[in-house]
Amino acid sequence: LDITFHVDGKNIHVHGASEEVVRIIEELIKNNARAEEIKETLERLLR
């Protein structure tokens, strides 16, 4: 699975993920999660 995301100002662009995963990533970023935390969360979800 190949998910890429980047933050452009306040806009979060996520590619290669389901809508549910996109929402989770957006929440994590809004809550100022570190990249490592986001990665760990995604790995748990995608197991």
Results as ranks from 00 to 15, higher is better:
L1V: 14
L1S: 11
L1E: 10
L1W: 13
L1F: 14
L1P: 08
L1M: 13
D2A: 10
D2G: 10
D2P: 07
D2C: 09
I3R: 07
I3M: 11
I3G: 02
I3S: 04
T4G: 03
T4F: 11
T4I: 14
F5Y: 06
F5M: 03
F5K: 02
F5R: 00
F5L: 09
F5W: 12
V7K: 03
V7N: 03
V7I: 13
D8E: 11
D8C: 07
D8I: 02
G9W: 04
G9R: 01
G9K: 02
G9V: 01
K10W: 15
K10H: 13
K10A: 13
K10C: 11
N11I: 14
N11P: 14
N11Y: 15
N11F: 14
I12T: 02
I12R: 01
I12E: 01
H13N: 08
H13Q: 09
H13A: 08
V14N: 01
V14L: 09
H15A: 10
H15T: 13
H15R: 09
G16Y: 05
G16E: 05
G16A: 08
G16S: 09
G16D: 10
A17D: 01
A17P: 05
A17V: 15
A17Q: 02
S18A: 05
S18T: 15
S18C: 03
S18K: 04
E19C: 04
E20K: 08
E20I: 05
E20A: 09
E20T: 04
V21K: 01
V21H: 07
V21W: 09
V21T: 07
V22F: 06
V22G: 03
V22K: 08
R23L: 09
R23N: 09
R23M: 10
R23T: 07
R23C: 04
I24N: 03
I24A: 10
I25M: 05
I25H: 00
I25R: 00
I25N: 00
I25T: 01
E26F: 14
E26Q: 14
E26D: 10
E26N: 14
E27W: 13
E27L: 11
E27A: 14
L28V: 01
L28K: 04
L28W: 02
L28H: 06
I29R: 02
I29Y: 03
I29T: 02
I29W: 03
K30M: 11
K30I: 08
K30H: 10
N31L: 11
N31S: 11
N31C: 06
N32A: 06
N32C: 08
N32Y: 07
A33I: 09
A33H: 07
A33G: 07
A33L: 06
A33P: 04
R34K: 13
R34G: 14
R34S: 15
R34M: 10
A35K: 05
A35D: 05
A35R: 05
A35S: 11
E36Y: 08
E36H: 11
E36S: 11
E36R: 05
E36F: 07
E37I: 14
E37L: 13
I38W: 05
I38E: 01
I38T: 01
I38P: 00
I38A: 01
I38V: 14
K39H: 14
K39E: 15
E40K: 10
E40W: 08
T41N: 05
T41W: 09
T41M: 12
T41Y: 07
T41Q: 09
L42C: 04
L42Q: 00
L42K: 00
E43V: 10
E43R: 11
E43M: 08
E43W: 07
E43F: 09
R44Y: 13
R44C: 06
R44T: 11
L45P: 00
L45Y: 07
L45N: 01
L46Q: 04
L46R: 02
L46K: 03
L46V: 05
L46G: 02
L46C: 08
L46F: 09
L46T: 04
R47S: 15
R47P: 15
R47H: 15
R47Q: 15
R47M: 15
R47T: 15
R47G: 15
